[in-house]
Design a protein around this nucleic acid. Structure first.
Lengths: 146, 146
DNA sequence: TATTGTTATACTCTATAACTATA
DNA sequence: TATAGTTATAGAGTATAACAATA
């Protein structure tokens, strides 16, 4: 690509940021509007719902979120009765987190909505294009294939 | 997709955000480390270098950046001698912006680096995969094909 | 000494309202 | 009234250092 031909509009980081921002807005509006969640709160809720009770450090390892963010998300979610903390009697530094019934309902609702939202995002792309897109994104994000 | 199969790791907004963040870091480190630019400053500099002198409102229209962000970026770039403002005598509300020689050098350097960076990002993807990826991203970002 | 979780701090990015000066 | 540009403010995201309690 000659220097004079270079254009931001084709620059991958730019394209990715625009697409990420646009594609996040709709779903964000739902979980924020319905439950008042921030992004990290939705992600913490998701991991507890999907993989069962665990500690903040374990969530962090799975979701690649720093423990300070998790700490604040857990505080808000607990305060608002979406999850509960249980002290680990064998190691009193640790707190095992799990969803309340309210949290589980939110989790299930949000998963359903997310699946629909995902399908809406890729409507207009062929099966093959969707496959290439997700594989390329996993590659760019350094997420192993499985 | 059954509800129990849904996983954030395949959720498009999540994948896009991870890929966008990862792919932005390296280039951001360069323009921040070398010139001390923030993202909006690099984008404003780019538009003036690529399309010639124009006003803040015109940059905003081209780059889809709000005028308040542009105002702050222009203030910083002017203060640091990367661009100059010239009052439009025919309409004294408008200020025509253009790059200084210093600004042009930074623009040319950053464009070269960006082109290389872009190639590095997609190394490992076939030509066809790259084409599908960019087209899909433009589709998701609602950026017209040309 | 190392680990779990919390708090404090700072910086970036985004969004909106209100203001000025000009037209 | 409308437009170009500025300033103020608030919310959200990110990153890091330092701390208390426990191991």
């Amino acid at each position: 690509m000659a220097r004079s031909d270079f254009d931001l509009i084709d620059f991958l980081p730019y394209l990715l940021n625009q697409a990420a921002e646009k594609s996040s807005l709709g779903f964000q509006a739902y979980y924020k509007g319905t439950y008042g969640f921030l992004r990290t709160e939705w992600r913490v809720l998701f991991h507890l719902g999907r993989y069962g009770e665990m500690t903040a450090v374990e969530i962090g390892a799975r979701a690649m979120i720093h423990k300070t963010k998790i700490s604040r998300a857990v505080a808000r979610l607990t305060e608002r009765r979406f999850l509960t903390r249980r002290e680990d009697m064998a190691d009193r530094r640790r707190e095992v987190l799990s969803l309340t019934p309210l949290g589980r309902k939110a989790f299930e609702d949000l998963c359903e909505k997310a699946a629909v939202y995902d399908r809406d995002c890729v409507a207009g792309l062929s099966e093959e294009e969707q496959r290439v897109l997700r594989a390329a994104l996993r590659h760019l994000a350094n997420i192993p294939r499985d």
